[in-house]
Nucleic acid binder design. Structure first.
Lengths: 231, 231
DNA sequence: ACCTGAACACCGTTCAAGT
DNA sequence: ACCTGAACACCGTTCAAGT
């Protein structure tokens, strides 16, 4: 989504946009606002379903547009009606026992979690996330120190100096990761383990009798077997 | 962080980078990998503190670099040693009662949540997130329909057509949002309410006797007064 | 093997000039 | 009031040419 592409879609020269908007950021904010305005939650019962439905609906909206996650992340949504629209879910959460502050926190957490998840999901789905060249990956993966133990190559130095990385932290041996390879069900690209389609199952498992909230539920199932669930 | 800037920092011409890396994406992946490799968790007790510490440490690392959140989000981390480093936290979670799948899910959720949160946090802190011109905001905020009820202006049409927004969903009245204005403690930019520094308090409140996990804890406090807390 | 220099097709943005 | 045309300073990337 570039300004020039938007202009072309409108049959207009790029410079014409700047008679309506001060800059590109405002245009992106408007796109994000439009997406957010169109979110409609299915009727749900219980605070847990409310939070999950919020995540599901946002995720669906973000996935509907190319790079929707990256586009939506961190944008300003200068539309008071969006606040009005939050009244109802907030009230539901308060009725379920949340303080108002907790309700805002919980909703914001679901939105942030969804955004972070979808960014990764879409990046994975895009062509850009194709497999690394195996040899390049081997070179990059081993602590960024070449086999001869000599000086680092230029671009790796670039990445490192840009982040003021200490030299002492690299050079670790690469070895197998039994637990994770199990989790990723065997033999996939190790880098893909960090992209495992995990939270996705939470958002999708709507037929599951218990709808786990992303962070807490996994542990609660075992550590609090007697815990009652509100609503 | 542009390729040209990295090259300049290395005292080299931009084209020289392409003798070491196939493209910019690989360079960004390396930066993200370096950040991730340097995460060191403080010793913690209990799965809840482990997840919170993970979020805190990642958040601190992301905040340490300009646009760290956006840079890190969705990047590939092709370093097997990063998987090795996850063995220990995963084992801790499993010992606390998580299944391995649940442990991976929980960790991933914390990472995604943190990334989404920091992207918004850094965008807010950057100059770009300055106040909208009040008149422009008023124009944009009221359902994207001008006061005269006439046709939408071009760039708004652009944003809308780009997302196939239905016309019927706009034009809502702007009115006050009592609950949220309370939550944001009165009178700030309504758009800022969606950026409320909420989860931040979760990550920071490490002196608090109970360390709430971002999503679940808020509700648990009231809806499960008798619930015991593991570890 | 490593880098330069010049070029290519892009980008957001500005601004005088048109109607 | 709205748009064009041309220009500006940028991007990532390619590639022949140098050493």
């Amino acid at each position: 989504m570039t300004a020039r592409a938007v202009a072309a879609q409108l049959g207009v020269r790029p410079s014409a946009l700047y008679h309506h908007l001060p800059d590109m950021a405002t245009l992106l904010d408007q796109m994000a606002t439009a997406m957010r305005r169109d979110l409609v939650l299915q009727p749900v019962t219980g605070w847990r379903e409310l939070l999950l439905e919020t995540g599901r609906v946002l995720r669906r909206a973000l996935l509907a547009h190319r790079d929707g996650g990256r586009l939506f992340a961190g944008r300003r949504l200068p539309d008071p009606s969006l606040l009005t629209a939050m009244e109802e879910p907030l009230r539901s959460l308060v009725e379920a026992g949340f303080s108002l502050e907790q309700a805002v926190t919980a909703l914001q957490a679901v939105l942030d979690l969804t955004i972070g998840f979808v960014i990764e999901e879409q990046h994975r789905a895009s062509g850009e996330s194709g497999e690394y060249d195996p040899e390049l990956r081997r070179l990059l993966s081993c602590g960024a120190i070449p086999a001869d133990g000599g000086r680092q190559r230029a671009p790796v130095r670039a990445a490192r100096s840009a982040f003021r990385e200490r030299v002492g932290s690299c050079g670790r041996r690469c070895r197998d990761s039994p637990a994770l390879s199990l989790a990723v069900r065997g033999g996939r690209d190790p880098g893909a383990a960090l992209s495992i389609n995990s939270i996705d199952t939470c958002f999708h498992r709507s037929t599951h009798p218990q709808h786990p909230s992303a962070v807490g539920e996994a542990a609660r199932a075992k550590s609090q077997p007697g815990g009652r669930v509100a609503a």
